[in-house]
């Protein structure tokens, strides 16, 4: 896929994952969340030696295991069997979360219900009163990684933007998201609330995106 600034076609989910992968520098230590973020690993260049972290206690995670390679002692954070990449290491849970919280993890790629213009993230709870809450490592990843990349559809099925002035869903972490990849555009965020549109897809203009998100977006596509 060419990386320009204005593209006529919307990105598919797989293309969003591919687009994220192209922004991961060689040698980076990366944690991929469950769902579309996991697909990012399909597009990483093996020669770049990007190290995948899984929060249950491993650096250097290899691809999913199948058939005879399945070992129930070797799982990823989604509890699926995985494999070892050469150079991998194991550690206990407290060290694994120290890797995040201590600022050692370069990038976390996560899904989201909403992201605010200041980079506040909502991805752990819908806020429905009878839902059983479950958080896992979402809050630790949000505050810990040097960069938090979110992959999400920009618009809900009901036509509401998920990039918002203020979160209406419960907070996962404040001011943590640095970039949002959607089917229509890529947005760079900072904690002061400036949102820069760096690429557009599907023929939308930055003015269209301003209407859709109700945000005063900065056109950085040129």
């Amino acid at each position: 896929m060419s990386i320009g600034h204005r593209h006529p076609e919307k990105l598919t989910r797989a293309q969003m994952a591919e687009r994220v992968a192209s922004d991961v520098p060689a040698g980076a230590v990366v944690n991929l969340g469950i769902g579309i973020p996991t697909q990012v690993s399909n597009y990483l260049n093996p020669e770049h030696e990007i190290i995948l972290h899984t929060e249950n206690g491993m650096l250097g995670m290899g691809p999913e295991a199948h058939g005879d390679d399945v070992d129930v002692d070797l799982l990823n954070a989604g509890k699926l069997p995985v494999t070892e990449a050469p150079g991998c290491s194991y550690f206990h849970h407290a060290d694994s979360f120290a890797i995040m919280r201590g600022g050692h993890l370069d990038i976390a790629v996560l899904g989201a219900f909403q992201v605010s213009q200041k980079g506040d993230l909502a991805n752990w709870h819908t806020g429905e009163p009878d839902a059983i809450p479950a958080v896992g490592g979402a809050m630790d990843l949000a505050v810990g990684a040097k960069d938090v990349f979110v992959i999400m559809e920009l618009m809900t099925k009901a036509g509401a933007s998920k990039l918002v002035p203020e979160l209406t869903y419960p907070v996962t972490g404040l001011g943590c998201v640095t970039r949002v990849y959607t089917e229509l555009a890529i947005f760079d965020l900072d904690r002061s609330g400036n949102v820069r549109v760096t690429e557009t897809y599907g023929g939308v203009s930055v003015a269209d995106l301003c209407d859709m998100t109700h945000l005063d977006l900065i056109d950085a596509t040129e």
Binding site: E55, H93, A94, F97, G136, M139, D140, G144
Partner: peptide, 23 residues
């Protein structure tokens, strides 16, 4: 949160009275 769970367990074993965490 999973990292706070791990660190609170670790703190108990390490004799830490409490700790400040960003998570």
């Amino acid at each position: 949160p999973q990292g706070n769970l791990a660190e609170r367990i670790r703190a108990a074993g390490a004799g830490i009275g409490a700790f400040y965490t960003p998570s």
